[in-house]
Amino acid sequence: MNIFRFAGDMTHLCSIIVLLLKIQATKSCAGLSLRTQELYAIVFVSRYLDLFFTFISMYNVIMKLIFISSSFCIIWYMRCHRIVAQTYDREQDTFRVAFLVVPCFMLSLMINHEFSFTEVLWTFSIYLEAVAILPQLVLLQRTFNIDTLTSNYIFLLGAYRALYMLNWIYRYFTERDYSQWIVWTSGTLQTATYCDFFYYYILSWRKNERLSLPS
């Protein structure tokens, strides 16, 4: 494991933990898309089903379990927590996730490395992760609300994307037979959708800044 990969995993983990702590501290999930968080949970569950079939390392097992449980923890807060659930923008967060889930699943049936149960689910999770931020992007475009989406979370999520791309480049040049077109293509698309999200986040941030200026 190279330093880019490890740093990428850590920033990804930190982004989720930061979000969770922020929800806990402020007792609010305003501005956060439950649909995006649920898509991430689907991504983690379908990708990490291989926990039952293949063992790679103790590091991988622990990280996978943390990713799955923390994503469900965020969903629990948004859906079930007495106070936090009341701050959820239910009426605004209406993106039809089926429009993402179904095409991604179809695509994973057609384009994969191997037509098997775990392999198709793994491929599905890669495709879905690339577009999972879209409901969040739409919610942000509608509300300009950046309450719970702190700049820390946004920064860490972006750093995770950048570091993983560096990791692929590093592995491509240092390992024999390392090439994974599915991951690279969807990873690049994912980074592009993230950049779009980032752009709107900055826009909303500046708009909020203007609103809160003393007159």
Partner: peptide, 10 residues
């Protein structure tokens, strides 16, 4: 290929 079947990244 070997990279396809062993998904060692998270």
């Amino acid at each position: 290929g070997p990279a396809a079947s062993s998904h060692d990244e998270l």
